[in-house]
Simulated scan of single mutants.
Amino acid sequence: MTTTVETGDPSEHFAPSSAPVTVADGSGGYLTAVSGTRSPSADGHGQLVFFWHGTTFVGWDSSSESLAIQAITPGKPDTIRVTYAHYGPDDALCCPSLAAVTIEYRWNGRGFTPSGMPPKRGAEAAVRLEGTSTTRP
């Protein structure tokens, strides 16, 4: 996670902020997801979900941060569910007023296919792997 940085401020890295969630991949392997929060962070916001197949990092839930990830839970085999806080345009960071959004990320044998897009409010910071211009592996 520490090699993921904000595109506009490479001193901002990510640190784990949830327990790992692991599910079977449907082919004898396993999939893991962990949320990471921008670090340093004064408010605990700016989060990504990091995905692995076995021990290989395969990507993030988005190429830009979400304000808040509420939960990561196992779905059926080969699926991980992520619930995002959903903020209205004038909501304070403490108080999202819209119903949370749950996206299912299903393993397709090479990566994850989301059932939708995480909610955004404005222009969240884009991310990349440190030392590269890669914004999404």
Rank of each mutant, 00 (worst) to 15 (best):
S63V: 00
T134R: 14
T83Y: 06
E130Y: 15
G29H: 06
G46D: 01
G8Y: 02
S133Q: 15
S62H: 11
A123I: 14
M117C: 05
R106A: 15
S11I: 03
C95I: 07
G44C: 07
K76W: 00
C95P: 06
R110K: 13
A92V: 05
S11G: 04
G88R: 06
G44D: 12
D90R: 12
G29C: 07
G8N: 13
G88Q: 09
S133E: 15
S41E: 05
S35T: 15
T55L: 09
D61L: 02
V58C: 02
F57L: 10
T7G: 00
G75L: 01
I103W: 10
A85W: 03
L129Q: 14
G54S: 06
T132W: 12
G131W: 11
S39I: 00
E65M: 11
L98A: 10
A19L: 11
V23H: 01
G111R: 12
L93C: 03
G28Y: 07
L129H: 13
V82W: 07
T37K: 10
C95W: 03
R38K: 15
P119W: 07
P16M: 00
I80Q: 02
F14M: 03
P16F: 05
G122W: 14
R110V: 11
T79L: 03
E6M: 11
A85G: 07
P40L: 11
T2L: 01
D91F: 08
L129C: 11
I80F: 03
D25N: 12
